[in-house]
Amino acid sequence: MFKALKTRIHQGYQAIPDIKKAVINEQFRGLPLINKENCINCGKCISACPTAAINENLSIDMGKCTFCGDCERICPENVIKFTNFHKIASSSREHLIVNSEINENNYRTDAIKASKQIKKLFGRSLKLRQVSAGGCNGCEMELNACSNVNFDMGRFGIEFVASPRHADGILITGPITQNMAFAVEDAYLSVPDPKIIILTGACAISGGVFGNSDALNREFIEKYKIDLYIPGCPVHPLTVINGILDFLIL
């Protein structure tokens, strides 16, 4: 008993006090900044990119990007620089494609089009059914971390639930394999209306490193309206929580 009490006292208070103000270590690779003027069109970044996230006109698609940093390292002219800015979720697929005009200050303008209706419906309580569909388990580990004592997403009324019947929407990770396609749609259809869909991680948003696989079936993504995209490989818990908070206007 005393041992347990001593252990509890040693633990202290672990939660991040203010999730919105939390800053990740500067080594973290979040929003990329592009300094187009320096570019000499050598094409090294494009061939180093595993997911073809860098376009010819030098914009980076964060829906495809694995944030591996290889392009930044290989560029002889320091054109690409990953910042530690992690609030990169967006409700629009197009907004994830960033060009040289985007920076930490203006990215969030219009990134998430939230509505009062969403806030009214889910602002006090958002329960999500997470569906893992062919990824590597990286995003799943980070989503579990969202609920641990450090990030403590539950304090905002956002939780993962066991049954789609208890959920307000589904949150998908992984590129959706052929073998999993039926279960993904089935889970979504089992959620009562009104409901939302959140795509989490490069795999779910674009197929990610598995984009060229012949064993995927991404019809679901095309068939239904996606409400929120949370980029990363894997997603950082702070990106997830802040993205959802912005979506709920909290």
């Binding site: 569909a133 590597c136 388990n137 580990m141 394999t177 073998n179 598995f210 696989s213 064993a215």
Partner: peptide
């Protein structure tokens, strides 16, 4: 099992593609 199958072994046969990231994504843990 089989629900996670994305034929990753065949993705390693792609030519002129960075394969390192595939290796990092075989099992995220």
């Amino acid at each position: 099992l089989g629900y996670q199958h994305k034929n990753i072994e065949d993705l390693f046969l792609q030519k002129n593609k960075p394969l390192m990231h595939l290796a990092e994504s075989i099992a995220g843990d």
